[in-house]
């Protein structure tokens, strides 16, 4: 019932890679229901591609025989599924209450200025995507942010400059 024959959007599914398929198949053993695998598949594709394009979403829907509309509803609900391309490093900047008290507003302005982008945007060189994130659970060492998989604590403007140049040099997550 799910196969969409009326394709007025003109968008077509892409081919999933063998690695993606292997990862998705692995999840099928863990969850008793393919809908649960659907969300896992979104994460898997994002891990491999950096983000979830329409073509990827349709590919997952096709592979798991899940309605694309439903998958879209799931993909757009969660904030760690990116439905737009992101830069090489995703900066998750905590702007919740403890970090706010510890002065994250000033740091926010500093980052925006340094990278010359606003939240939700990607720097023109493709190095960084800046995204606000709710409390990262490290409030005793606020302000904090995550870049890729690394957590950076007790942030200051100087520290932020260092961090940015560190990732600019392509050193990435350890």
């Amino acid at each position: 019932m799910n196969k969409q024959i009326i394709a007025s959007s003109g968008q077509r599914a892409r081919q999933l890679t063998a690695a993606e398929i292997a990862d998705i198949d692995h999840e099928m053993g863990i969850y008793p229901d393919k809908q649960a695998v659907g969300l896992e598949a979104l994460k898997i594709v994002q891990k491999h591609q950096g983000w979830v394009s329409d073509e990827s979403l349709l590919a997952i829907a096709g592979y798991l025989d899940l309605p694309a509309a439903e998958l879209e509803g799931v993909a757009t609900f969660f904030n760690l599924i990116y439905r737009q391309p992101v830069g090489r490093n995703v900066m998750l900047f905590c702007d919740s209450v403890s970090c706010w008290i510890m002065g994250c507003e000033g740091l926010k302005a500093h980052i925006k200025e340094t990278l010359d982008i606003d939240f939700g945007e990607t720097s023109p060189d493709g190095d960084f995507t800046l995204i606000p994130v709710p409390c990262l659970g490290d409030c005793d060492r606020a302000p904090v942010m995550m870049v890729g998989e690394d957590l950076h604590r007790n942030l200051t403007t100087e520290k932020i400059d260092e961090i940015i140049s560190h990732y600019r040099r392509g050193e990435g997550s350890e």
Binding site: S96, V97, S98, P134, C135, G137, D138, C139, D140
Partner: peptide
């Protein structure tokens, strides 16, 4: 899921 603002115990 620890996401309550200001909460950092489960981590």
């Amino acid at each position: 899921d620890e996401m309550e603002p200001g909460t950092f115990k489960d981590r």
